[in-house]
Amino acid sequence: MSGLLRAEQLVVGWQQPATQPLDLTVAAGEIVGLTGPNGVGKSTLLAAIAGRANVFSGRIEQRPGLRLGLLRQDVPPVVGMPLSGRELLALTGASPEGLPAWLADRLDVRLDKLSGGQRHYLALWAILQAPADLVLLDEPTNNLDVAGVAHLTEHLRDRAAAGAGILVVSHDTAFVEAVCDRVIGLRGHDVS
């Protein structure tokens, strides 16, 4: 495995530091989980790696030319917009191949006519399948039923086997344990 991302003694936040110092590496083909209670700064860490939140101390090193993908917790603003699932995938360059059957035949439906779970999975798929070397996922199992979580677990493994690194923030312990190669637990005052 080759390194995609390395963080050393990283402290990040928006207006002020919001996390404890963290050491982190993600290699190609590896799935790393970040867990911890609400407010510990998991999402802020992903935002900092993606260049949105501020780095207050420590450093982040990325492999030169690294292509990043980021899925935030909030669903894309598609309500009231005539955008189909097929068009959404085309926007990010994601292939519909491999979509679960319960979504594959609904690709031509407007996104705001899909159920919340279906819409979330398509939004997730559009990022997961877009060309990227490192994929950052924030609470990907939100709004997903059992079938959705099972399909996501299987697909994340396939994506990693194809060489992508994946960093997952989730409060879903069972999902994290099932899919991740390593799990880093964040707490308010230390990191385990």
């Binding site: 993606a50 260049g51 949105r52 292509r67 990043l68 993908g69 980021l70 935030r72 894309p76 603003p77 598609v78 955008l83 068009e87 959404l88 085309a90 926007l91 990010t92 559009a126 990022i127 877009a130």
Partner: peptide, 17 residues
């Protein structure tokens, strides 16, 4: 067109690219 749509739906991906 596609950039306007991408910037609206996935602003992070637009920036990261």
């Amino acid at each position: 067109s596609s950039r306007l749509l991408l910037a609206r739906v996935y602003p992070d991906l637009f920036r990261l690219r």
